[in-house]
Amino acid sequence: MSFMKRFLSRLGFMALTVVAMSFLIFLLVEIMPGDVAQTVLGQAATEESVAALRETMKLNDPLMVRYGRWASGYIQGDLGESLYMRGVQINSIFWRRVGHSMLLALSALIFYVPLSIFLGVLAGVRAGKFSDSVISFLGLATMALPEFVSGILLITVFSVNLNLLPLTSVIPIGQTLWQNLEILVLPACSITFVMFGYVSRMQRSSMIGVMNSDYVRAAILKGMPKRYVIFRHALKNALLPTITIIGMNMGWLFGGLIVVETLFGFPGLGSLTMTAIKTRDIPLIEACVLFITIIFVFSTFITDMMYSFLNPKIRFKREDL
């Protein structure tokens, strides 16, 4: 079956991308200005101690050897040791942050996907009418706001004025995210702001296209009720482009939320990446960036599979009768 073939080839391609990207990340960090040992020891360090550290960190080995060591560590689940926080295993902080980010991403998804699809469909079906104008305006307005502006707006309204939600999303020491779920609300809203306009406009235009298609006309002229035509005939086809859009943004959502996380002080992967970059914590940067890359590639893969599964044109090949 062609679906299986597609699945396998995309899977292979995905693996290849990850390997290539890992090498590229390694290389990029490698050519970043500044010597690692020097950074670790500070500007005042003597040349001998820098050289000695280089030796212990095995920085003098050839590039490929170092890459191999790095990569095999990753495969065994060892992300290495932080440079900035000496002696701290990256594993011990990294996965908790990933968990936080996932939770944030999921809550954002739960917020914005149904909302944007529902309103997008509504606007599409009522194209040109009042409800469409309102939804389209909302979409445009939220899309025009950068996330730090909408974030600040949300904070001002809900935390400062109404005092309903915490000002920042910091988890108090000794507690876990699960005990502080309310800190997810504002960042998730802020993400919804960014995504809503994007996704709902996409959904609207694909819905309009489908509602004007010959097959929807045919369904209506078969005497099918309008509601049934929308849900049974139009929706599935109109969802296809939206799914692609949502899927393509998954990578961003699961790790690229640098602005939002920083703004709210949310302890996720995005703010971790930010810190790593600021402190030039090279092993941490590598871990973060590689992870985000993997999420990107993986979500693209999932999107592609979902798309081909929903689209019978790909799922079933034309057979000649």
Binding site: D214, R217, H233, N237
Partner: peptide, 11 residues
């Protein structure tokens, strides 16, 4: 006129 586009591709 156009049978192909008059049939829903996903049903």
């Amino acid at each position: 006129q156009n049978p192909y586009s008059s049939l829903n591709p996903s049903l």
